[in-house]
Design a protein around this nucleic acid. Sequence first.
DNA 1: TACAATTTGTGCGTATGTATA
DNA 2: ATATACATACGCACAAATTGT
Lengths: 241, 241
Amino acid sequence: MNRPVTLTFSPLYQQIQAVLLARVVSGEWAPGTFIPSESALAKEYAVSVGTLRKSLDALASDQVVIRHHGKGTVVATHDTDRSLFQFFHLVRLDGKRSLPSSRVLLRKQRAPTPEEVKILALEIGEKVIHIKRVRDLDGSPTLLEDVVVSARFFSGLEIAPLPLPNTLYQLYEKQFGCSVANAEERLSAVAANEADEIHLEVKKGTPLLEIRRIAKDLQGRPVEWRVSRCETSQYCYFNEL
Amino acid sequence: MNRPVTLTFSPLYQQIQAVLLARVVSGEWAPGTFIPSESALAKEYAVSVGTLRKSLDALASDQVVIRHHGKGTVVATHDTDRSLFQFFHLVRLDGKRSLPSSRVLLRKQRAPTPEEVKILALEIGEKVIHIKRVRDLDGSPTLLEDVVVSARFFSGLEIAPLPLPNTLYQLYEKQFGCSVANAEERLSAVAANEADEIHLEVKKGTPLLEIRRIAKDLQGRPVEWRVSRCETSQYCYFNEL
DNA sequence: TACAATTTGTGCGTATGTATA
DNA sequence: ATATACATACGCACAAATTGT
């Protein structure tokens, strides 16, 4: 009797990779801290170091951990250069990179729009926190952003702390235990409206680059919906393929 | 006597990776063909299979080769789905992907602009070939493109063949032995001009997404400069971070 | 259908090199 | 100098996919 079942087979190193990821997600291994050594983990899971290495290398290529020769392996945080620019693609036309400062225009809790319910996979009755801010690059207002997150996971974000750091993902990580791991962005060109005219100091109708981002955590759950409208006379969106 | 020389040390697997890449670049291993097996290459270079595997895995992650379980390793081409969408990021607003058809408006050899000389690293006196085309997505004109390449490396592109395939990189690969390996793109929002008005059927001043791309070959040399102006009411530029 | 040959994928164990504390 | 941890390199065994006999 032959059995055509494939079962849920997956290679050992992938199974271990998933387990290690789970320990990061659970908070057992916090961002910025060292995890046990290769040999210790290999012993714990009763596999060879080589197999465990493959798991860690995969997590490293996913930016979940960072390996340091001679020191150890740390859980990735959002305060390294590499990580900061993973989600910030605006560069000056001359190629220089810099991070923006920001001024918060609005911060409140409210009911979600139907679009937000869909994008953030919200449950019925769940509220959202909405932050609107202007981000300055080299002193001139360049980005007008609307940031929306679930009020359930980010309870209190609408009141404290003051001021907001301009790298929100560090705040999500430290204050709310939520690590943004990846995101998808959709870009299009739009005409400036009245709000843009006021906050970005451009004329109505000026072409703006609109970036719509869905940010996801380590488990792939959508955690933030962000729309950025950008004035691109001095800056552009840089992407390497 | 201790020797403080570091020399030009690099790991064995990286040295071999470079040698294997060179054999692809030289044309010895053409795109679409199988290269020798791991064990054969390991024997040839007198290294362990494990070491040679690391070299091949690295080349595979750079999209230079594609590994096939049970069959062998082939040099990557530009006619696979994976590869086609590496350089084409426009998707419908509903998320569907499709490839455009194209109509050539202009195709000629001419002297380069100073900007083109710089971007393509042209030598003095070198000419360029300039192709202007409109690309239709789902039947409506969506992209207006200017493609510029060196006339030295792409001699004859301005006359033959007719018609041009809409995936130019396949043509570069097959007719000119030039494999585009990666690219950098800079995006900004611009207002439609008279040419856009005619070819994209939009009013002058309509916001367009402008994509400026520098495409590079396996050795990192710039081989193509491309400016695409895109009408983004039905499509957007999709990017995964 | 069965079997063998080839090729890549997975997994183990070990030795040695290099970076860090 | 020593200990620890990651990086490189080797060799072997077996699994899984593909192809041809």
